[in-house]
Nucleic acid binder design. Structure first.
Lengths: 350, 350
DNA sequence: GCGAAATATGTTATCGATATCATCGCCGTC
DNA sequence: GACGGCGATGATATCGATAACATATTTCGC
């Protein structure tokens, strides 16, 4: 890693000193600042002729609207805040993309933050987001610190919690029951004849969706009379592909006769699958594996992985849509719950 | 997908009407607004006693600082803008995370946008970002529309282009030569004895880094006297895992004696690898496969994929660091080029 | 113990846009 | 032809914080 200085592109920050304001554009055109302001909005009444002249001046001078100033006086920042646990996880980046797409052409801009699955970090982020006075906020999950919750309630903006169904929602919810989804997968696999079930997940409750999946698994295995589920907890959530591989090794050492292993996500399932191949185990004959989330990888790898398909992108789109509804109606909308779809996808790995 | 109304969490936007301002906190405490403002900054001179009383009031009232107002008067928005082609690609989300991490505790907040590999979309995004008056901006690549370039130059803020080395940089650069990296991979594989080289990539030049990798491949194969490289172009960049699978099928139909296939990214390489397994081809004996980017998947799958490791996270961290340097020095820093490291990682797939 | 420097706090103007209300033509209608 | 209404534009106050300067109070060195 070396550094090379070049005089090219040198460029002092204060040089062209972007001092340009609306008033100067106005003077240049020979109208008032107010008229320039109006020209930037499509609903305002400005003659076509004037607007054209203004826009030409804007182009010529290189003026760029200053929304910080605008939002102070209009009391509309045009921001929507969204917090996701991690952006490196494609499930959540799909949700983020859904939000972005739904916001396109609304004039709203997304302020995105990563909580790293930590409620404390979430609290910090909520505060720093609220300082920007967003018009709405989208969160992942329903577990918040008390202070975070207070701030949210006091903010006076629509709040959407996603990806799960909190017991006591703040406001709107767009998501599904992770435990029921996992339960459905267990039942379908039991129907296929599997009896000895194992589960691989992270060690703590930091990942609330992961915990819900786990409890759905445990309960359903019990309900079906298939004895206590075999549980390997490995690594701090979210667990990686590699940890999935290590976990299945532990599983097979401890309970060699396990027939099928369900994983908290497709990522660990994939790691487990590859580790089995490396060890010469046949999947699903020697051991069957299933994941959760239907990541792209699961439909591509060989054998393909059985999983639960979740509408990640749709969660984002709908969360944004609920927010837009609420903003439209002047905020008189009561909280509601929008359930999103999921489905079991059985493939060659089970 | 159904909707369930609940009266719970109902919550009208105008109810608690977050009218709370600094002045009211000030009145509550019995000091001036200015003192409250000072209490929020660590460098300001406020007695410990007063600050404590103010913070208690802030807590009690639930006041949240309004940065939109603050940044108007201080002329510091605390925003850094960053544009990446896609957030669903883990290489770029790693870069985004690098930026976020580097910005932690600087009081700066990231405004993130996705260009979808489109220069037009990038132009739009640059404009909407500049409206927020960011203090610096990080871009991916060096291909911008003329208007985008003009806006960037006029903005008077530090600009960092990343992930490649533009011929004519706007300002700072943090990246590496994609063509040289690919060239290095070709040479190492040639050293291992491979002679008949194929390449899989997307169909258009939208993905400039992809194009650079391709030209690095072609040139090096020629230079080594290994005849014209065999090229399969498939799909609009960025190409998916599935398209990688389809592409290798075309490759082997057209040039069945191909010995090694290089892919524009690990994702397509993985798709190709899995498709080979599905068809009973042995990798690397029947066909060797290499990727680019060293995604997590490549070190986990079986066989593991040879690739170029790129310091995605480091690109983000360093880009942010260059920006912080420039902000620190009052912007009198000339543009410079920071080269980031990459290395060939040979694994079982070649 | 006195003046200078440092500390703590207040006052006022201001950042750059927009809400609001006022103004001025112009058109059409009864 | 007078009046109501609408379209286009301008003047002024204001959004909520902070910069800059002013002032009061304390600290400290010699």
């Amino acid at each position: 890693m070396k550094k090379v200085d070049t005089s090219k592109g040198a460029h002092s920050r204060t040089a062209d000193a972007q001092k340009l304001t609306m008033a100067e554009v106005a003077k240049y055109v020979g109208v008032s600042a107010m008229t320039v302001s109006r020209a930037f909005r499509q609903d305002a009444s400005v003659s076509e002729e004037t607007r054209k002249r203004i826009m030409e001046a804007v182009d010529a001078l290189g003026y760029v609207l200053d929304q910080s100033a605008g939002s102070l006086s209009s009391r509309r920042t045009g921001f929507i805040a969204a917090l996701v646990p991690s952006i490196n996880n494609s499930n959540f980046s799909d949700t983020a993309r859904g939000i972005t797409d739904a916001l396109e052409n609304t004039g709203l801009q997304l302020l995105l933050g990563y909580t790293d699955y930590s409620a404390e970090k979430e609290e910090q982020l909520i505060e720093s987001m609220l300082r920007r006075r967003p018009e709405g906020i989208i969160l992942t999950g329903g577990a918040h610190t008390p202070r975070a919750r207070r701030m949210l309630e006091k903010a006076g903006i629509p709040v959407v919690e996603t990806w799960e169904i909190p017991e006591d929602p703040v406001n709107h919810v767009v998501g599904f029951s992770n435990s029921e989804a996992m339960s459905l997968l267990v039942r379908e696999l039991a129907n296929k004849g599997y009896r000895k079930f194992g589960y691989i997940g992270g060690t703590t409750a930091r990942d609330t969706r992961g915990s819900q999946r786990r409890s759905g698994f445990l309960k359903t295995v019990e309900d079906l009379g298939l004895g206590p589920g075999r549980m390997i907890s490995f690594g701090v959530p979210p667990i990686t592909m590699e940890q999935g591989g290590q976990a299945i090794v532990s599983m097979l050492e401890r309970w060699p006769d396990t027939e099928v292993v369900l994983c908290v996500s497709d990522l660990s399932a994939f790691g487990a699958l590859m580790e089995c191949q490396r060890r010469g185990l046949r999947v699903p004959q020697d051991i069957a594996i299933a994941g959760f989330g239907d990541y792209e990888i699961s439909s591509i790898c060989h054998p393909r992985i059985s999983t639960i398909n979740v509408d990640c992108y749709g969660i984002g789109r709908q969360a944004a849509a609920r927010l837009l509804d609420a903003l439209q109606d002047g905020g008189d909308v009561a909280g509601d719950i929008t359930l999103t779809s999921y489905r079991v996808v059985l493939r060659e790995s089970t």
